[in-house]
Amino acid sequence: MDQQMIAAYGQTAPTARMQAHGNKICRVAMQQGYDLFAKQGSMIAYTGFITFNPWRDSRGQRARGAITGEKVELMQCTGQGDLYLADYGADVVMLQLNGEALSVNGANILAFDAQLTKSIESIPGLAAKFSGNGMFNIKLEGTGWVAITTQGTPVVLNPGERETYVDPDALVAWSSGLRVKTKSSMRAMNLIGRGSGEAMQVAFTGSGYVVVQPSEDSTDRFHIRG
């Protein structure tokens, strides 16, 4: 193959547990004893010896709806080697949690270290309205790596400056500890939301950050409006 191409897009030596290749591929340096949870179907390539299994909870059941709602299933990756993950061309952002907690829209999870504590977080007033619309959240806490996906380059807003309202479809993640509530902008008359006709935003106050993507909900990449 063309040498230029190889030079430009070839593999590089691993330097961290998670690493970007371009902005759409996440490379994970797998090691025995340090499993990874990844979105099913996100493996695009690997070398070495890696096995993939459905993630089962402690009772041995497939933990699908239980933690991730209806749409996302996770697989447990075990082994040693280089694992490359991507999610249908979404941008990948890698983070390292250091004892902190992060709340991520389930649709935007790509992978995370198995040692992180995970729980479902529901937003009062939102879960009912947006169930089935990807609005379930996974709260991750502890020390380890997380890879999330966004449609397009995200922007990070600080609600500490001013109360911040985010379209639910554009909401990716936020730091735990923010005050979250929903706001129905009646004056907007269905105008501003992208969602299912609800002119509803999620309002954040407090210090922290909110990650916003420049596109609509990633579970439903081609949202035909109207």
Partner: peptide, 16 residues
Amino acid sequence: RSGSMVAYQGKVEFKR
């Protein structure tokens, strides 16, 4: 265009 707002900060009103 409606639907193009992804977030806002402050007191903003949106009218058709």
